[in-house]
Nucleic acid binder design. Sequence first.
DNA 1: TTTTGTTTTACGGTTTCCCGTAAGGATTGT
DNA 2: ACAATCCTTACGGGAAACCGTAAAACAAAA
Lengths: 220, 220
Amino acid sequence: MFKRVLIAEDQQSANISVRKMVEDMGITGAKYVYHCDDALLQLKNALLEDDPFELLITDLLFEPDDRPQKLPGGEALITASKQLQPGLKILVFSAEQRGAVIASLFNTSKINGYVRKARRDAEELQGAISSIYKNKLHHPSNIEHPILKNIHEFSPYDVAVIRLIAEGKSQKEISAYLDAHHIRPSSLSSLEKRLNLIRESYDFTNNGQLIAFCKDLGVI
Amino acid sequence: MFKRVLIAEDQQSANISVRKMVEDMGITGAKYVYHCDDALLQLKNALLEDDPFELLITDLLFEPDDRPQKLPGGEALITASKQLQPGLKILVFSAEQRGAVIASLFNTSKINGYVRKARRDAEELQGAISSIYKNKLHHPSNIEHPILKNIHEFSPYDVAVIRLIAEGKSQKEISAYLDAHHIRPSSLSSLEKRLNLIRESYDFTNNGQLIAFCKDLGVI
DNA sequence: TTTTGTTTTACGGTTTCCCGTAAGGATTGT
DNA sequence: ACAATCCTTACGGGAAACCGTAAAACAAAA
């Protein structure tokens, strides 16, 4: 089992629980911090002392307090940690439940496991730690994988367009924006066609519905 | 100090922390449950055995699982508990941070304390229990007023309309829907006027922006 | 280079949405 | 009852979004 585990969690009560779960698994070399910057510092120090951490358990959302932080949240911490110590295993423990966000953690940030703060989270956390120790990924049990079972994948282009709509831009304005930023295609016609394609694949009738859907999924 | 405390919290890790905090205060007669209905049952049984609970610590949001519940959430549990046992002290432990919601808990539901799940929540929870034991109210330290210091309050009518837009209904369809459900005003013109008013007060240019805003705020 | 196929753009017609004006109804105060 | 005011509705012009079709631009292969 892991010997060196680092816990980054700003919420004190959650921090305590995670600690307890880890201890109950017989892991004694666990450290815990309440700030992202402290977490990265601990990782660095452990590397320097040639006794690196094997697993990082971290939250995603860290609330700002009187101590200004360089790392704004869990995702930044994960990126920085991976850069510092590529072999580090990462387990995310968060209340986030939007499929797109979680999927991106696995695909882009290359995390090893995700446990959502929910009913059986304590048990699941221990299971996840065991799985990751065996080099397996731990996907959240309850979460649907909406982005995977959907027909349409949102490209960066789509996301940009949808975001602009959600900001109140008209399609004509969006067309001009795309043109100005040399994003192709930029014509109003292409824009309409693209939106129509997205709407069609989801049976949406207006873009209000599209915005609501993307907000729920965490696409924007 | 309290002798009989009941903990209602569906999130296992949070439930464990609260239990630990309570135990650390020397309270041995604490029980814990994961469902609202179980909480009410425990309160009833304790009353029948003439050994009633003195304090209820409860979450607000309970996620549905395979056990169907009569009480949909913490607020319903609080109401039912107060009706069953008016003298029961109630401490809410939740992630909710909207000032209006918390204020309503104190004013309407007559709770004795509120601790928000945040950085120093474990310490604060113990402090709150002490305060309540001394018949004092415990208000949350961070009175966070969210973005909702705006001019416009969303009426149930507004919410219904916005929800229908987010479902992809056209304004004509919404007008027909309102008419069919005897919600007044129902005319297309009134609908347009109402939406225009909302948009104006927030400087929105289209209803996609409105949907995004409401999704962020949790209005829909 | 020519051919072939795909992507992007241009444009016209239709629907929906936006926004003003004015007329009808209801409510309140005198 | 009357007037004043507010709320609701009806209607019409204009803007934006929607949805075809066809032309133009581009890319890849022969």
